[in-house]
Every structure is written in structure tokens, then in C-alpha cells.
Design a protein around this nucleic acid. Structure first.
Length: 820
RNA sequence: GCGGGCGUAGCCGAAUUGGUACAGGCGCACGGCUUAGGACCGUGUGGCGCAAGCCAUAAGGGUUCGAGUCCCUUCGCCCGCACCA
């Protein structure tokens, strides 16, 4: 036989060809087809910030592999992509460089699209959504108006972070190390009129429905539950001595009511003004002034020492009639509960710390033993396991019973009630920024706040504005935008100049994908109903709370509005780990990124893709290893040589594998790869394919023939490779005479009969210790297997004639002879 | 502090869910090919031991015929929330 030189595996030669073929075939161009099972596959859309690196690509590769696999499994796969294109970075770049945000965003989108393309990552580009385009944001505005109509969008005054030098509001993220990120000034609090979404109205449903999300990572569900932060407790009224007013507190421990030795109200509490006695007023005012200067971050820090000031006022404990001093302290938050607490230093660590500082006594009212101690407590006993002491008629009750009885008595006496409080706050969506969706509201001197009629949408964001060096929203100074007329009375009026938080844009984009060109509604209900919920959502853990919670909230609101038929958007969620290199997360700013263009030029897209999948369990962070990429390149090269090569095998003859061995390994691999992809174990799927090619190599080296049966194995190898190394798979598929496209071929099916073995290796243990391995006929019964095992010389020697008292038999696997 | 998770070769990591610990890859060693190569191909590779064998999944204990896997204690690391009454 003539020795022929197999063409070398050259990704540069084959990859562009197949990308063109996929484009022509329109792999993910889909319509609603009830005849096929649907699969809505979605990767979180990115902010187009410029060139991507291989760290970004991990989830795109995972998503692409899954989409391709589902396609081969016969699903009708919706696999769209888009751009979260509004937001601060583009606006800041514009202030700095003068390049309009839209221009830089479009440039960045073009770069990212090119990178996705050369990596062989495919999407339904005919459904592309870009949030800064008016054919999208008009519907964001439409939805805002819907929320407004439903009473879920409202405006109120709220304290925000304010930079006195830049004369602007700062988002929490814009406070770096306690100071303004731009000028280094310490921000203060300022009361401003802001738009909110009433997400708190959905707190309980958002909490309850976490139970439905059994295909979400546990940690994400826990984080959301903690964020919502449900607390059961009671509100109780304390009459203020000498005043016709009551101080209402929220507590989760009404059972400790007899342990109250002081009370605290937040500095922002409305009663502060009237509560302070004349001789204490000066101190109180000074304290409030001081805390106002403190940032939220400082205030919320546990390191922050507790401070406070006595108001001079006393409240009356409604259960003991004791006089209780009322303090003002900033460890109590005005925005949680009632903004006032009862201080129980004996049973709350924070109250204990405060009481220690100001020499306020503590009183034990819960005792683990049921007996009160003779001496004061030296630390807060916060346990719920104990009995009430020093608590008058409630003595001896368990905490739970004490809670119930004391709360019930308060309700009967009309001085309180059981309540449930959430940590979740309403969602502040106002941004004093240009590059976002204009809030479609108008301020009329006569009619007040008037929504823009939906027929007048979109409220267009002006393309030309003058950016200001002081960071102020340029929309405020754009007269052509601001000046309008009242839709109700026609008199001159002003537009709202705030824009929406970009998280509003991303809370519903997945619905727009189902009917991206609809000119009459945000989305077509029938189409949304067909595709929703998303079958697999893939994205970074950094969105565990905000984006995912907001989207869940949106979906529930739209469900209540009758616009969708499911009330959870994401059926399954996967959060991939980050890629690190040189000891840090891969990032542009760290200079440790690997560019996809470089990877494609050096190794080809397939090697880059397979390496990203092979690098480790996809949910864990992984270290990028340049040498590891070489290993994957070797693997794909081997696959190529096995299929395309025609070299004569070196006649080793030893350890020759049979065709049955080859086919068994193939079907074991089909089985494993299929199960691994379904379980998101791409790393082990790739290693299974490596094992297969290693065995194929052994087969050929042992003198195995490249006959028709071999070719059949090769065709299945190509199909198994297709989700991971799609270009190579196509090339192999074509050379093997496969039908038009491997990407459209059906996924290989396991032939159970090929998995069968005539003999199996069974482990023989004596007292649980491995003593021998024996080859026995597959499916042998206990008696036969045992007889064969006892023939082992090794086993006999170890037994030394000791009687076997018991035997454990696991068919085709293990025999354990027990002598004790 | 509260909550979630993790700890297996020199490194990244497998382990059919209680049944042969370390698959696959990196690295390393040796060999082949080569003018040469850090390229490519092949073979080997947990430790101790001549061997039988013994030891080994953070440490210690327990349950079990059998534990990386289940339970308890301790140590270490990562992530989230963090004065939420």
C-alpha cells in the first residue's frame, strides 16, 4: 500500500468555510412550530464595552455548545442575542472623549459581533435586540406607563448620595472608598424626588416562588431569599410621657418586652423634632447634623462604633409601666421597620453594645435554665431556646409561647399587632443621566404629573446634547427636549429629565426576543407564550440578585397584567465560574486577557472553544493555562489524523483491540457525553471524547483496519464533536460523506447491545480489602461468582483457612468475603 | 456574626452517588523522529518497600462487610449578606 501523506489539520483553512455554510443554512432561524419541542436557550446579553477576552467567552461557548446540541437532539431552538447598550460607561467616555455614546456603542457592538463570529458562536441574529434603539426603548417606556397605571410606579422624595462639588447625584456604585469616584469629595445625603417601582408589593411572591426554581443554583436562591429578608414580628406602641403621641417600634422578639431598658429612634425619624426636650435639643440637633454627613457605607459598617444621644423624653413600657429613656442613634435605620426600636440589651448584641457605651443597665428576661440569674448579664443572650423570667404574668413560657401571648395581648389592648417586615426596598429607577431611557412623564403647572400618552411614544432621547464638565444631566439643559405641552390641557409643560436605571431595560429583553419586530406591542403574547419560560439561562453570578430579581418581578407584574401566561422567566439557571490568569480574574484592566483573535490565529476557534469547556467544572472559577491549550490542540489534531489520515499502522500486534471493543467504547462515549451535556459537565464530556480517540489510536496501532465499521465510528465521533469543535466536526463529516451539515445531523444514539460485555472484571475483597480481580462471565449469579472467587490463590492465601461468615455480592462488580 | 460552598497527585481535576481512589489534561522522565528544536509522535508517572504488601482523599472520631462519598468534632479556604431590631 502506498504511504500517503494526510493533509495536516489546518483550522485557518477549514473554519471560515464552515462559518459561511452555517450562515447560509440559517441554523437558528426559527418560527413557532408546535410539532417540535421548543428550547429557549439564552445567554445574558452583554454591555458592549469593547473587545472581548476569553474570560467573557466561557458562557458564550457553553451556550453555543448547548444550543447546537439541542438542535441535533431535534429541538426547535430559540437562541437569540442582543446588547444591553444604555448605561454609564458610554456616557462617561463621551464626556471624556467627545465621542457620542451611540457611536462608541455601535463600534463596540461591531467588534464583539466579529469576535463571536470568528469563534463560531451562532445566534438568531434576525432577532437581535439593542436596548438603546428607539424600537426597543419605546416599549420600555410603554411598560413604565403600564406599571404607573397599575400603581407600581410612583414618585417620592428619597435621600440619595449627593456630591456637593460635582453638584450631582451619585449611584451607590459611584462611591469608591467612601468618596466621590470623580473628584474625591465626601458625599452627603440629599432629599430628591425620585421614581420608584413598587417591588415590595411582590416581596412575598418573589420569596414563595423561589421554591419553584428547583433548577436554579441553591446559592442564588438563598441569596435572593436573604435579600428579600422576611422577618416575622410585631409592632408595639409605647406612649410618650407628657405628650399625646405614641412611639411605634418593630421587634422580632416581643417575648423580650420586659427586658426593655431604653428606646432608640433613627435620626431621620419624623418624631425626632417633637420628642427632644428643650435642654436636650441642642445635643440632638448636633448629633443629627453629624450623622447626616456620614455616608451610608460608614453608617452600615459593623466596625462603626455605636453612637447616640438622649432626647430627654421618656416612653412608657405598656407591659411594665416603667419609664424608658428615648435615645436617637444612627444604628437604627429610618427605612426599616418603623424606624424605632425597643432596646433589649440582655438579648440583643447591638443593644448590648449600645447600652454598654452609655451605661444603660440590662435585664435578663430569657433564661436557658428557666431560672433568673442573680447577677447582670455580661453578654447578650440571643437564643430563642429558653423560658421567660422577670416577665410578670408571662414567666415560665417558652419564647415561642411568650411571643404569641404578648403579641395577642397587644392586639387585644389595641396597642400593637403582629406584622411581617421585609428588607427588600422599593426599586429606585431614577437616574440623573443622559444615556438611558427617558421616563415618559410630563410636569404640567395645572395638571401636575401627567403620563405621556402611549400614542406619543417613544419619547426620543435627543441625539445631540452638550455634555457638561460638572457631570450634571445634559438633558436638563436641552430645551428642545424639556419644553413640551401638557397632553391634558395643552399648556406649556416640562418633561421629566431623569432616565431609567438600565436594569429596567434588561428586565424584559428576553420577551422582546420572541417578537423583536412587533410594532404594536412590547411583545406578541402568543409568541411569548409559545417560547416562555426560558429553558436554560446562562450568565455570571454577579447578577444573582439584581438582574434576576428584577426580571422575576417584571414577569410577575406582566403576568398580573395578563400579558404573559407564566410568572417566572427563567426555568433553569446556570452561573458559570470566572476565568483567572496569572493570579487574577481575566480583565481588560488587569492586562491578563487572552484575545479571541489571537487564539483563533494561533490555534483556531475549535481549540479555543474546547479548551474553555475542558478547563474545569463550568460552575467553578478556573485558571487559564497556556500549556493546557496545547493539550487540547493535540487532541483535535489526533481526531483529525484518525479520520483523515491514511498512514499504515505500525505493526505492534500486541494488545490488539477488537471491533467490538471499539464499538463498545464508542457507545459508552455516546452515553457519557450525552449525560454530561445534559448535566452541564462539559469538562468530563471532553475527557470522554479524549478517551475515545485514545482508544481509537490504540486500535489502529494494534493493526485495526480502517474499514466501513471504522468509518461509522468516525462519523459518530464527528457528531459528538459537533457542539464543541463544530468546524472540525463539519470537515470530518464532509470527508466521511455525511449529509449536508453535521450541525443539522441527528445526535448519535446509544446502542445498548454494543455496551454488553461477555466477561466483566469483578473485584474480590476479604473483609473489605481488595485482594484480587477476576474475569468472570457477565451476569454471573452469586453462587457461580463466589465459586470462581474462592478459586483465587491470592484470596485463599489471605483467608488462611478462616471461615467466611458472610458474603456480599454486587453483580458484575464486587464480591466481599467477610470472616468476622 | 448569619447564610451558602469547598478541601483528592507537583498543578487543573475524575470517581456511575456507599462498591477497583486518582479518568482526562498539564508538568515531569525516558524513547522515537529530526541538522536542531521548548514542535510532533510513543511509553511511563501517588508514596514507602526487593517482594508479599502497607500507607494515602485537610486532621481526628463514628456508622458500615465496605466511606473521598453518610454522621459528629476540629482546622483551613472561597463566596454572599452584613447594625434589617
Amino acid at each position: 500500500m502506498a504511504r500517503t501523506i494526510a493533509p495536516a489539520y489546518d483550522p485557518q483553512l477549514i473554519e471560515p468555510k464552515w462559518r459561511a455554510a452555517w450562515k447560509q443554512a440559517g441554523l437558528f432561524r426559527v418560527v413557532e412550530d408546535p410539532a417540535k419541542p421548543k428550547f429557549y436557550n439564552l445567554v445574558m446579553f452583554p454591555y458592549p464595552s469593547g473587545p472581548l477576552h476569553m474570560g467573557h467567552f466561557r458562557n458564550y461557548v457553553i451556550g453555543d455548545a448547548l444550543a447546537r446540541y439541542k438542535l441535533m437532539r431535534g429541538f426547535n431552538v430559540l437562541n437569540p442575542f442582543g446588547w444591553d447598550a444604555f448605561g454609564l460607561p458610554a456616557e462617561n467616555a463621551a464626556i471624556k472623549s467627545g465621542i457620542p455614546p451611540r457611536v462608541s456603542i455601535e463600534g463596540n457592538i461591531a467588534i464583539s459581533k466579529h469576535e463571536l463570529e470568528i469563534m463560531g458562536v451562532l445566534y438568531a441574529w434576525d432577532r437581535e435586540v439593542t436596548t438603546c434603539n428607539d424600537d426597543y426603548y419605546r416599549w420600555t417606556q410603554w411598560l413604565f406607563l403600564k406599571f404607573y397605571e397599575m400603581g407600581l410606579a410612583y414618585k417620592r422624595t428619597a435621600a440619595v448620595n449627593w456630591c456637593p462639588k460635582d453638584n450631582t447625584v451619585l449611584a451607590n456604585e459611584q462611591i469608591v472608598n467612601g468618596v466621590c469616584w470623580r473628584c474625591g469629595t465626601k458625599p452627603t445625603k440629599k432629599e430628591l424626588d425620585q421614581w420608584f417601582f413598587r417591588i415590595t408589593a411582590y416581596a412575598q411572591r418573589l420569596l414563595d416562588d423561589l421554591r419553584k426554581l428547583d433548577r436554579w443554583p441553591e446559592r442564588v436562591r438563598v441569596m435572593q431569599a436573604n435579600w428579600i429578608g422576611r422577618s416575622e414580628g410585631a409592632e408595639l406602641d409605647f406612649a410618650v410621657e407628657g405628650q399625646d403621641t405614641a412611639l411605634r417600634v418593630f421587634t422580632t422578639r416581643p417575648d423580650t418586652i420586659f427586658g426593655v431598658t431604653f428606646m432608640v429612634i433613627a435620626p431621620e425619624h419624623p418624631l425626632v423634632a417633637t420628642l427632644a426636650t428643650p435642654d436636650q435639643r441642642k445635643d440632638v440637633d448636633a448629633y443629627i447634623e453629624r450623622t447626616r454627613a456620614a455616608t451610608e457605607i460608614e453608617r452600615l459598617s459593623t466596625e462603626h462604633e455605636k453612637t447616640g444621644v438622649f432626647t430627654g423624653a421618656y416612653a412608657i413600657n405598656p407591659y411594665t409601666q416603667e419609664r424608658i429613656p428615648v435615645w436617637v442613634a444612627d444604628y437604627v435605620l429610618a427605612t426599616y421597620g418603623t424606624g424605632a426600636i425597643m432596646g433589649v440589651p440582655g438579648h440583643d448584641a447591638r443593644d448590648f453594645a449600645f447600652a454598654t457605651t452609655y451605661r444603660i443597665p440590662n435585664r435578663e428576661v430569657i433564661s436557658a435554665t428557666g431560672e433568673a440569674q442573680a447577677t447582670p448579664l455580661t453578654a447578650a443572650f440571643e437564643s430563642y431556646d429558653g423560658r421567660l423570667v422577670n416577665s410578670g404574668p408571662y414567666n415560665g413560657l417558652s419564647c415561642k409561647d411568650g411571643f404569641e401571648r404578648i403579641a395577642a395581648d397587644a392586639e387585644r389592648r389595641g396597642i400593637g399587632k403582629r406584622t411581617i417586615t421585609y428588607r427588600l426596598r422599593d426599586w429606585l429607577i431614577s437616574r440623573q443621566r443622559y444615556w438611558g431611557v427617558p421616563i415618559p412623564m410630563i410636569y404640567c403647572p395645572d395638571d401636575g404629573i401627567v403620563p405621556v400618552p402611549v400614542t406619543q411614544l417613544p419619547v426620543l432621547l435627543p441625539a445631540e446634547v452638550k455634555f457638561r464638565s460638572d457631570g450634571q444631566n445634559p438633558l436638563v439643559h436641552t430645551d428642545a427636549f424639556v419644553n413640551t405641552t401638557c397632553p391634558r390641557c395643552g399648556t406649556p409643560a416640562r418633561r421629566e429629565t431623569d432616565t431609567m436605571d438600565t436594569f429596567v431595560d434588561s428586565s424584559w429583553y428576553y420577551l422582546r426576543y420572541t417578537s423583536p419586530h412587533d410594532g404594536t406591542a412590547p411583545f406578541d403574547k402568543a409568541k411569548a407564550d409559545f417560547w416562555m419560560p426560558i429553558d436554560q439561562y446562562i450568565g455570571g453570578i454577579e447578577h444573582a440578585i439584581l438582574h434576576l430579581l428584577y426580571s422575576r418581578f417584571f414577569m410577575k407584574v406582566l403576568f398580573d397584567a395578563g400579558m404573559v401566561s407564566v410568572d417566572e422567566p427563567f426555568g433553569a439557571l446556570f452561573s458559570q465560574g470566572m476565568i483567572q490568569r496569572k493570579g487574577a480574574v481575566m480583565a481588560k484592566s488587569k492586562g491578563n486577557g487572552v484575545a479571541p483573535d489571537d487564539m483563533v490565529a494561533r490555534y483556531g476557534a475549535d481549540t479555543a472553544r474546547v479548551y474553555e469547556l475542558f478547563i474545569g467544572p463550568p460552575e467553578l472559577d478556573a485558571e487559564w493555562n497556556d500549556r493546557g491549550v496545547d493539550g487540547v490542540a493535540r487532541f483535535l489534531n489526533r481526531a483529525w489524523r484518525l479520520v483523515v489520515g491514511e498512514e499504515e499502522a505500525p505493526a505492534s500486534g500486541e494488545g490488539q483491540l477488537t471491533g467490538a471493543d471499539l464499538r463498545r467504547k464508542l457507545h459508552e462515549t455516546i452515553d457519557k457525553v450525552t449525560r454530561d451535556i445534559d448535566a452541564f459537565r462539559f469538562n468530563t464530556a471532553v475527557s470522554a471524547l479524549m478517551e475515545l480517540t485514545n482508544l481509537m489510536q490504540d486500535y489502529i496501532q494494534g493493526g485495526g483496519a480502517r474499514d466501513e465499521a471504522w468509518d461509522a465510528v468516525c462519523r459518530d465521533l464527528a457528531r459528538l464533536l459537533a457542539p464543541f469543535a463544530p468546524h472540525l466536526a463539519e470537515e470530518l463529516w464532509e470527508r466521511l460523506g455525511g449529509a449536508p451539515l453535521c450541525a443539522l445531523a441527528s445526535w448519535p444514539v446509544v446502542d445498548q447491545s454494543e455496551l454488553r460485555r461477555s466477561t466483566v472484571t469483578v473485584v474480590v475483597q476479604v473483609d473489605g480489602r481488595l485482594r484480587d480481580r477476576i474475569e468472570i462471565p457477565a451476569g454471573a449469579g452469586e453462587a457461580d461468582a463466589l465459586a470462581l472467587a474462592r478459586r483465587s490463590a491470592n484470596v485463599e492465601r489471605v483467608l488462611e483457612g478462616r471461615p467466611v461468615t458472610r458474603t456480599i455480592f454486587v453483580a458484575d462488580r464486587l464480591i466481599n468475603l467477610v470472616t468476622r
